[in-house]
Design a binder for these strands. Structure first.
Length: 269
DNA sequence: ATGGTTGGGGTCCAA
């Protein structure tokens, strides 16, 4: 096997892994990924499309799915250990975790989108989203430490910074960018001193998106994006962080997901 | 203020 100095890890909300399996394969190959975490696989475990991924050289594949909704997966060409899932708030399949050979623990999350109305008193889905964020933060504080090497990534369905949305003012009342959610995500981020890898390389003053709605004739022209997909690391991994990219061009082509992948490079330790 | 589009499963829900 040739020398490989960096480990390349990605996250991608695929919005049906069966419909877009060829996109997944192309991403793995063209980005030379070691590990890819998926969200919204929308498939029961018995129907997960294993074979094309194995044929592409990814033999360590773990998933937790359900019919029609939610679902997460980790696709890897590196051995993974201690695969486990956690159910926060309810039984939705929104989390799967694994430990890498160097001991780094990887947590893949699909945080609830939260519905349309940003009021937990009248919208159960928004209440669920807030409770889910709280539950993760509590679990992390009680079970993990900020001096351990951890990666937490996925579709968090929250765009925390003003430049993470196309119009901060116009989206203050829109689920994904409301102050109450941003506050929740901030507390979650503080739980272990998480580092937002994308913003390590792009200043907070610069627009940065990972999702563009289907409800636009021309997503690139209108450019009404939001940064919903994140890769966070704990402080011990910061010196190992080499790069982070949001693969905007993957929003193009036939039948794209409405999200694009985010990829980081970490020095192998 | 409203509506715009997509996927999955099945004639509607979630995003």
């Amino acid at each position: 096997m040739r020398y490989k100095p960096f480990m390349r890890i990605g996250t991608y909300n695929i919005n049906s892994v069966r419909l877009r399996i060829e996109r997944v394969i192309a991403l793995l190959r063209e980005e030379n990924l070691d590990i890819l975490c998926l969200q919204e696989t929308k498939v029961e475990d018995k129907d997960f499309p294993l074979r094309p991924l194995q044929e592409a050289g990814y033999t360590h594949i773990h998933y937790s799915g359900e019919k029609s909704y939610n679902g997460v997966a980790i696709i890897s060409r590196i051995q993974l250990n201690n695969i486990h899932t956690l159910a926060f708030v309810n039984s939705h399949k929104r989390h799967i975790a694994a430990t890498l050979p160097d001991g780094t623990e990887l947590h893949n999350f699909y945080i609830p989108a939260g519905g349309d109305i940003p009021d937990p008193a009248i919208n159960d889905k928004f209440a669920h989203k807030l409770a889910y964020c709280d539950a993760i933060a509590v679990w992390l504080r009680q079970n993990r430490k900020s001096d351990a090497p951890l990666i937490m990534l996925g579709d968090f369905n929250i765009a925390p910074l003003e430049q993470d949305v196309w119009s901060h003012k116009q989206l203050l009342g829109v689920v994904s960018h409301t102050p109450v959610e941003v506050e929740k995500l901030g507390r979650l981020k503080d739980s272990l001193g998480w580092i937002d890898t994308s913003r390590e390389f792009v200043p907070h003053t610069e627009k940065l998106y990972s999702w563009w709605s289907y409800r636009n004739r021309d997503w690139r022209a209108s450019n009404r994006g939001r940064r919903l997909d994140h890769i966070w690391i704990t402080p011990p991994l910061k010196p190992l962080l080499q790069s982070s990219h949001i693969l905007k061009d993957r929003r193009d082509g036939e039948q794209p997901s409405d999200h694009v992948p985010v990829v980081v490079e970490l020095m192998s330790s």
